[in-house]
Every structure is written in structure tokens, then in C-alpha cells.
Design a protein around this nucleic acid. Sequence first.
DNA 1: CCTCAAGGCCAT
DNA 2: ATGGCCTTGAGG
Length: 568
Amino acid sequence: MTEVDRMVLRPNHEGEMCPVCGDRVSGYHYGLLTCESCKGFFKRTVQNKKQYQCSADSNCHVDRTCRKRCPSCRFQKCLTMGMKMEAVRADRMRGGRNKFGSFYKRDRAHRMQRNAMRVTTIIPVSTGTQSQPPTFYTPAEHQVSSSTTDQNVQIQYYDQTKVKTEFIKTEYDAHLQSPTLSSSTNQQITVSDFIMRPGYLVDHQESIAALLNSTNEDHLLRFPTSYPLPEIKQEPFDYTEHHFIHHPLLDYSNYSSTANYAQMMPMTTISTAPSLVTSTSSTSSGRIIEASSTSPILPLCPAPTEKTVDHFYNSSIAEMCKTLPDDTLIPRILSQTVKATKNDAHAFAVQVADENLKEIVTWAKQDQMFSKLNLDDQMNLLQTSWATVHIIDITNAMVLGTLHQQYKVGNGEEVSVGFIALLGNQNFVSSWNEIVMSLRNMGFNNFDYCAFRYLALFDEGMELYPAVSAARLRVLQAWGEVRSYTAFLEIFNQIRRLAYDSMQYLWGLRTVCPAIWELLNPATSLVLEMLKTTADIRSAGNTVVTQVTSIQLPTPQTTYAPVVYMTS
DNA sequence: CCTCAAGGCCAT
DNA sequence: ATGGCCTTGAGG
């Protein structure tokens, strides 16, 4: 083998950009493909326990040319992008391999799969050639790409210099980064329990209250330990290896002898870092806009001052992302449910919502702040937010391009994804399509998805609860660290409005179209149970719920077009 | 053996 | 303090 051959076969990071500064990637460093300089910077910072403080708004732009200006923001970005302090060795032992090695290998395969999946929806950067409307992958294409094995991990990655950079969290990342999420509660449950939570087709006998009452462990036990993936083949990542056994990761933190850093690692949930929410939060978005959008001058941090390093780890959207459902969930629900649904488009949409609602409840329960609320308040929050979260989930899947454009139900009707997302509320499908297009063009990413979801759960209308407004502030703070989010908030509010419209529409079917209503299995549907409870509470004069659901809406239409097309 | 992510070195 | 290049060494 010649030297040239060796060079060719060597893992090729050519064209890969460092997610921190955009420089050329030299390999995996501390859990992430980064450049040599960010590797060194991260190592020095952690080894020497350096403490920086940004003299601006902790929102400095970091790129190759200005990465030296603000070490605080640079280090924050390192962490946000996924570099792991545990990978810096406390004992400074050189050489060898650590337990991340096998993860890196899998990550290569994973990245290839993700890239292959996303390549079809990638929007060329402005410096590229003409922009083309995004296309969608088909399950067949995906199967080919997902048959990736460790043998072909050396194949060159998709050239990311030609694509919009986007930080993608994976289940793998969640495993790698955080052994546990909550620190010490009876309901303690690990991140991977959520990320890897298998299955979604449970029986319909349980009510939302029952779901809320059950412990997470109960819930897990009732799920099968593996789940069918009809259209999306799983990659050779051994889920079971890590799913219920968390020792390897826990062991690693001991192995790497970084107990001091392990203590600094965030055990972050919404409720754990209220102290971070300072008076600056409310104005942060405005200043971010000023700093990074309208002003050509980047904020400088001329004299970083020292401050406790813990500052960095209290809050980050990346931490919150770990609880997001995996990207295959919504496609799975849709393709499985469409088979199970007999012949009505509305019934299909409601059943999809039913399946996702169970996931949403489980997700909400894992949140410390949510789980601290009493059951009634939890119910109130869920009643207000489930439809918004549901639409956000489907919107995200649509932005990712993991869904078909239409799904064919039993009677041959083609049902658009918008129709499904909006619970059959055809009136607003074109608005929703526009939202999807906008988000795609804006570079909607996992961070935004995460923020959307939490902002939906902790609905603005529920800010009567102090816990809710605290949670919202915290989300906005964490989101603001990585985004100028004003434009996204606008779209979020549109989605929220669509959700209320859709809930009203669906509830309206009960009187306007009893025939359709009967097809929805009102006796067993969790979604319809939710709507009924909301309606009952409202008629009983509950102020909280009234406030958020009494938006006056157009009268639900009485008919809908059986053949629904995507509009663009 | 070889690989490649760790830590180390040192000119800048 | 930075960052390019060097050395190390467990795992394949």
C-alpha cells in the first residue's frame, strides 16, 4: 500500500467544517468533529479549569477569523455543539483509546445515514448555485442509505461545504453526553429511556390521567423492548446494548477520572436553573437581533473576566434537546397508523394524534418542572398544549423531509400531511404548508424544534402559574444563546393559533358532522377525551382554560375535499 | 502491525 | 493564549 493509497483511505474530513468556528475539521475531538484549534482550545480550557466571562451578551459570533476574541462564547459554543468535557482526561494519559471510540465509529455511520436522508431536503447556501425546491426522500431510498454498515464508514461524507450547516442531535449524542437527566427524584429516569423509548402502539384503554399517574417505569415496562420499523430500517446501532444498561456511560465518567467535571455537568431540566433567568432575559431577543442581524459589527469581548465555570453549564438548548423524540417517531406513527385506519381521513388524523399524544405525555412527565405540578395542573397544561406540540412535531418532520407528501387511507383517499397535522382542519392546510416552507428556508433546526416544543408545553396562556413563566423564560434564554429567534417566535405563534383552530374544528365536528365524529372512535380516543375535558371545564367556567381556548374561530367547515393536495 | 484521538511541544 | 504539528498507545 502506497502512501497515496493510505491518504485516500484515511478518514476523509475534507470539506467538513468545524461546527464551532467553521475551520477545516481534523478529526473527532472530545466527541465532535472539530478543527485542530478548537480541539486545543477546548483541551486547555478544561484542563486548566479556565473561567471566562463574556463582556457582551454571551452571544458573540464565533468563526475562524474572530474565534480568539471571546473565549467565553467560543467555549460555550464548543459545549453547545456537543464537545464533551468528560473526554478530556484528568490523568492526562496519552494515546490509547477511550470508550468513545466505538461511538465515533457508529457516529460516522450515523452521520452518513443522516446526511443521505437529509441531502434531499438540503437548501443550497446563498453562495451556491440556483436554489431548487426541496424534494422528499422515499422509503426505498432511505432503506438503501440506512443499510450503512461499519464496513463503509470510510466513504467520504457528503460535502457539507455545499450545504447549509445544521447541527443535528442524534440518539447517539444523547447517550454520549449525559448519563442521567434528573438528579434525585423518585421518578428518576435516564435520558436514554426517553430517547430510546420503544414503541407507541399501546392499547387504548388508558386515559390521559392514567398516563399521567403511571410512573415512567410503568410506562416503559408496558412498551415492547423493540419495535417494528416498517419503512425505515434501523441502522446497525445496537440500541439494546445501551438502552436499559447505563453502566457503560456511568463507568466512563469514573474511568476518565474527571469526577470534578462530572459534577459540573448539567443535570439540567427546565426547573433546575431558574437562577439563570435574570432580568436581562426579557430583552435578550431584542439585543440579539441588534447584535447579530442589523449590526455589521460583531460584539467584541475585549476583556474577558473570570467567573465560575459552572456558569457555562447551567443552561443550554443542547441539553434540552436530549429529550426530543427521535426523528423517526413521526414517520413511524404515520406509516403504521395509516395501515391501521380503515377508511376515513379524519379518523386517520385523530389516530395519529392519539399515538403522538401518548409520546407527548411521556415527554412532559420527564420534565422536572412539569412533574412537580399537581395532576390537575398537568392536565391543564396538556389540554392547552398537546395540539400545538403535535403540530410542531409534524411540522418538524415535514421540514426534515422524512414524510411522504400524502398518505393513502383505506378508501383510497389521498390525505396530505397538513390535513393530518391540523386534525382534519383542511381550511388552514395551505397556511401550514407555507409555514413549513418558511421554516425550511429559515434553517429551522433541532434547537428551534426543541424551543418550540417547550414553549408549546408551557403555553403563554398558562403563565398564571409562576412555574410556567419561569420555564418559558428559561427556554427563551437558552434558545437566545444560539439563535436570534424573533422571526421564529412569530411562526411559533402562527402554529399555536393553528392548533387552537384545529382543536375547535375537531370538537365542532361533533355537532356539525356527527357522522364523521362517530368514525373517530370517540369512546377510546385520548385526543377526543382531551377535547371533551377542555369543553367541560370551559363550560364550568374555569378561567385558566377559558383564557387560552376561547379564541373565536371561524365556523368549522362542514365538508372537506376528499382529495387533498399539497400546495406550495 | 495500523489507526486515530488523546496529550504534549513550541514558534508565534 | 493560540494553533499546527508531534508523540503516544489501546483497540481493531
